[in-house]
Simulated scan of single mutants.
Amino acid sequence: MTQKCAIVTGAARGIGLATTDLFLEQGWQVAMVDRDESELSTAAGQRENVLAIHRDVSNPQDVGAMVRETKGWAGRIDALINNAGVAEFGPYEDCTFDMWRRVMATNLDGVFLCTQEAADELKATKGAVVNIASISGLRASTLRVAYGTSKAAVIQLTKQHAAELGEFGIRCNAVCPGPVRTKLAMAVHSQEIIDAYHDAIPLNRYGSEREIAEVICFLASDRASYVTGQVVAADGGFESTGVGLPALRN
Rank of each mutant, 00 (worst) to 15 (best):
A128F: 01
V154E: 02
S208H: 11
G72V: 10
C217D: 08
E209D: 13
S208E: 13
R223K: 14
L219H: 03
S240W: 13
A200D: 07
S190M: 11
R223L: 14
F238Y: 13
A18L: 01
T9S: 02
A128R: 01
D222H: 06
A84C: 07
A152E: 13
S41C: 12
R35Y: 14
A233D: 05
L51M: 13
F218L: 07
A196N: 12
T106W: 06
K4I: 08
V215C: 10
A119L: 14
S141I: 13
R205P: 04
M32E: 08
A163V: 11
F238N: 05
A133H: 05
I7T: 09
V232Y: 14
E88H: 14
I7H: 00
G236S: 08
C172W: 00
A162Q: 00
T228E: 00
V215M: 10
L80H: 01
D120G: 04
F89G: 05
L122H: 03
A213W: 08
G110A: 10
N49R: 12
I216H: 02
G14H: 04
A233N: 03
L24N: 02
V180H: 15
V129S: 06
S141T: 11
T20P: 09
D222S: 08
V8D: 04
C95V: 10
P179F: 01
L184N: 14
T182F: 03
N131T: 13
H189T: 12
N250Q: 12
R101K: 15
V63W: 03
L80K: 01
V86W: 04
E69R: 00
S38R: 08
T228W: 00
Q230V: 10
A43Q: 04
G127T: 00
E211C: 08
P60I: 01
V67N: 09
T96F: 11
G127A: 11
W28E: 06
E192R: 15
R68Q: 14
T70I: 14
L51Q: 10
L184F: 15
L138Q: 10
A44C: 07
V63D: 00
S190L: 10
Q29Y: 11
A18T: 00
T42W: 06
I77K: 06
A79D: 07
A118T: 11
E48G: 09
T142W: 15
L80E: 01
E37V: 03
V57A: 08
I194Y: 06
A163L: 11
N107A: 09
A185F: 14
L219P: 01
D98T: 11
P202D: 12
W100L: 06
K71A: 14
R101I: 13
M1N: 14
N173R: 07
V8I: 07
N107T: 07
F23E: 09
T125Y: 04
F23Q: 04
R205G: 07
L157E: 04
S225K: 15
V103A: 05
D62H: 08
E211T: 05
R13Y: 03
D62W: 07
D34C: 01
A52W: 00
M1I: 12
C114G: 02
S136L: 14
L219A: 07
T142D: 08
K151A: 03
A140M: 12
E69I: 06
G90L: 12
V67K: 02
A18E: 04
S225I: 08
